[in-house]
Design a protein around this nucleic acid. Structure first.
Length: 422
RNA sequence: GGAGGGGUACCCAAGCGGCCAAAGGGGGCUGACUGUAAAUCAGCUGCGCAAAGCUUCGGGGGUUCGAAUCCCUCCCCCUCCA
């Protein structure tokens, strides 16, 4: 029934909601029984809205993408909705302060960057999945008409009771623009319901309020049924946010975050999270997830390798995943850094003259200041080609280049950079 | 428009003329121990090729030998009143 290496699963016998439930994707569903019944009877169309504030999605979106993928595998039709129009406004959900407003051109180019990332998770061939942009229907809207049709359906009291808006109010208030966000998102749902027969909106748990208002709007306007399903907020058991690393955000764009780092993010999760993450971020059957996730000692450590490799394969492809794994194995085995390891280059002449170690680590981005480098050196936290740096005043020159023509810099045991001369 | 309160480092928060590069907590980082895990313990956490020094307490100006601390002014936030 399942194919381990990610082939499409056509299993009309299995209800996608059961799969999602079992794998831990579901935090809350507006009307679980009805939705399950509907999804078990016929293919449904559902949508997930994403934000267009950057030219890449980040690892936090992977959870939603995996979920859309499961829907597709079970024969349903997912819509990835770009928030081209809503990004012009800024969603207050989950924010203390308002989001920056972007221009239409910025958003346009952001969407071009994101599109290929979606394709790693969804098959857009034929009508199997759709990629839409809400700017297409939001832009032509007329204010008076919108207020008459939609504005009259919302109660301010109701909106202000929503967690997201309450938080913003308590944190210092918001503008009318932000308040109207929920109207617009609801309108999206209504529009997709009318034009594409979309009956379900999925998203992160912070979207619950906005989404449920949309489902209500559909009921009020068309009398039809609409559902909302939200995923839990994924954190590691130690409280680290999904997709945040010491270096910053883990992006899906390989230019921003090399697959090596993506791999390492999964490689370094706590033992306690292995099973949960295998279930969320791979397509492995649950028996295998369970077997790998409950292993102990050395075995659980190997399970992390499998998890990291598979998650990277899904997001970046086979080759990138293999490269990341091999680079990590080599690096942690003490070998010279391979090309998959994030690399910076330094001018050959500059290196020939000798560069202060502190400067070199700064250049590699492993420390943000010479002071930081010094304090790490004092604690034995920086190493060069595997040997701890002991002298903060040392100068490094070409002698440090290894066989392969690179220098390996490490901060702690896990963060490595490769320096080449150019 | 009026009255009051407030803006301190990544976050919370103390300080209210020198002993303040700024207490305390959180977070983060590094080391030891391990399995690239957790827990625990220790250290570090403004910049500077660590030497003098430099820049920081919303912005600008002033008083003073000396200002995060006092004065003026501008900006921003909160509460109440109109």
């Amino acid at each position: 029934m399942y194919e381990r290496q990610g082939a499409l699963i056509e299993s009309p016998m299995e209800n996608v909601l059961d799969i999602l439930q079992e794998r831990g994707f579901i935090q809350e569903v507006s009307n679980p029984e009805r939705l399950r019944e509907l999804a078990g009877r016929q293919p449904i169309t559902l949508y997930w809205g994403y934000d267009a504030t950057a030219d890449s999605l980040h690892a936090g979106s992977v959870l939603s993408l995996m979920m859309l993928s499961w829907f597709q595998r079970c024969g349903h039709r997912p819509i990835a909705l770009a928030g081209g129009g809503t990004t012009l406004i800024g969603d207050p959900s989950g924010r203390i302060s308002s989001r920056p407003m972007l221009t239409e051109e910025d958003i346009e180019s952001n969407l071009r960057g994101i599109r290929p990332q979606l394709e790693h998770f969804l098959d857009f061939s034929g009508d199997r999945a759709l990629a839409l942009n809400n700017l297409d229907w939001l832009k032509p809207l007329h204010f008076i008409e919108f207020m008459r049709d939609i504005g009259t359906r919302f109660s301010i009291n109701e909106i202000l009771r929503l967690e997201a808006y309450r938080t913003r109010l308590e944190a210092g208030g918001m503008t009318f623009l932000e308040l109207s966000y929920v109207l617009i998102q609801s309108y999206d749902f209504l529009h997709l319901n009318k034009s594409y027969d979309t009956v379900l909106q999925v998203g992160g748990s912070d979207q619950w309020g906005n989404s449920i208002m949309g489902a209500d709007l559909i009921r009020r306007v068309t009398g039809g049924e609409a559902f909302v399903l939200v995923t839990p907020l994924v954190e590691t058991s130690t409280g680290a946010k999904m997709g945040k690393s010491a270096t910053g955000t883990v992006w899906l764009d390989p230019e921003r975050t090399p697959p090596y780092e993506y791999y390492q993010w999964f490689r370094n999760i706590p033992d306690a999270d292995v099973e949960r993450f295998l279930s969320l971020f791979t397509y492995f059957p649950m028996e295998e997830v369970h077997r790998l996730g409950t292993a102990e000692g050395t075995a659980i450590n190997q399970s992390k390798e499998i998890l990291a490799h598979e998650a990277t394969r899904i997001a970046h492809g086979q080759e990138a995943a293999d490269g990341a794994r091999d680079a990590a194995l080599a690096l942690f085995g003490g070998a010279e850094a391979s090309e998959s390891v994030p690399t910076v280059s330094i001018e050959r002449e500059q290196l020939a003259k000798g560069v202060p170690v502190t400067e070199l680590f700064k250049l590699a981005g492993l420390v943000s200041s010479a002071n930081e480098a010094r304090s790490l050196i004092a604690q034995g936290g920086l190493s060069l080609n595997g040997d701890a740096v002991t002298d903060a005043r040392a100068r490094i020159d070409e002698q440090a280049l290894q066989q392969g023509g690179s220098i390996r810099l490490s901060r702690g045991r896990k963060r490595h950079m490769r320096v080449v001369a150019s």
